[in-house]
Simulated scan of single mutants.
Amino acid sequence: MDVNEIKRIDKTVKGWLRESRDNVLRKIDTRLTVNTKSSRTDLVTNIDKQNEQFIVTKIREFDPDARILGEEGSGDEVDSVAGHVWIVDPIDGTMNFVKQRNHFAIMIALYIDGAGVLGYILDVMGNHLLSGGPALGVFDNGQPLEKAADTPLREGLVGLSGPMVLHDDYHMVNIANRSLGMRVYGSAGIDIISVLRGELVAYISYLKPWDFGAGKILCETAGLKVTTVDGQPLGMLSSTTVMLATRKAHRDILTIVGQ
């Protein structure tokens, strides 16, 4: 795919995101229908479902032969990386959305034959969009992203999964102690934006493809490391514990995980 076609797709997706954000903001103060999925902390609302249906409809009109992997089930059963695969998280951080009406994101990614082409993470309430891919670079609200410093763990803040720290999975307590401090934002998208902007040196959590699909593309394009928590390659259809980090922090954390 040539760069002009990628730019055309990029412009189109940004239009979907503007419209999607407007849809969410119009409904955010209405009465929500909230249901649980796998547990009482795994929520879905009517707005999650409506927003996913909106984005899926747009993708099907624009790229009818593509397959779509959506968190809320409006897409397809995707079991291979062949062809065009779009990954959609209509509201990332649903608990934050329900309880705070803040700190949540919309994420879209396009992979072609398993290779990341374009990724988008929109901080809805902050109206802040990280976008791009290997052919374009990474943009922060339309401006080229300033490359984050390659900061080691001991000199930076780290975003961690609260439950993983409580259970000390993969020596998370030690990882937190070795950093300057731990942050728990409750939204993969918000955490990944913070890593891209250099506010965090790493983010570690158990993630599904819609949680990291866009972030993997953006972070790798920006020169950051994206692997499983023990340093293995991360496939786009994986559901596993994921680490996105500066190269130095990645090395430091792998040393702790391996102890």
Rank of each mutant, 00 (worst) to 15 (best):
K7D: 15
W210E: 09
A66P: 03
P134S: 12
E72G: 08
D113P: 00
I108M: 00
K248M: 12
L160P: 01
T228I: 00
D48R: 05
L166P: 00
I6A: 03
V242R: 00
V117R: 02
P134K: 11
V124A: 06
L69Q: 02
D48Q: 09
I9A: 12
H250F: 05
V24M: 07
D79M: 13
K49A: 05
Q259D: 13
V88C: 05
T41I: 11
V165H: 00
M164H: 04
G189M: 04
S194C: 13
L180V: 05
I28S: 04
P152F: 00
A202E: 08
S38R: 11
G156D: 06
H103C: 09
F62P: 08
E220T: 15
M95W: 13
T221R: 05
H171F: 12
G231Q: 07
E61H: 06
K14F: 07
W210A: 10
G213W: 04
L157W: 09
Q53W: 01
V13A: 08
R40I: 11
L130A: 06
V165S: 01
L157V: 06
D89M: 10
E155Q: 09
W16E: 10
G93P: 07
T246I: 08
L118I: 09
E220Y: 12
D168F: 09
G93H: 06
P64M: 09
V88N: 03
L25W: 03
G189Q: 05
A245N: 03
S131W: 09
V138C: 04
V3Q: 07
I190F: 10
S161V: 01
Q143N: 13
I9Q: 14
M164Q: 08
L118V: 10
S239N: 11
D65I: 05
E155C: 03
H167R: 07
L200R: 13
K225Q: 15
G223Y: 07
R18L: 14
M1P: 14
S39A: 14
K147V: 12
L218C: 08
T228P: 00
R8N: 15
L153S: 10
A115E: 14
I59L: 13
F212S: 06
R67K: 06
V88G: 02
V138Q: 04
G83T: 14
I108K: 00
G215L: 02
I204P: 09
T241Q: 11
R18P: 02
V81N: 13
G70F: 15
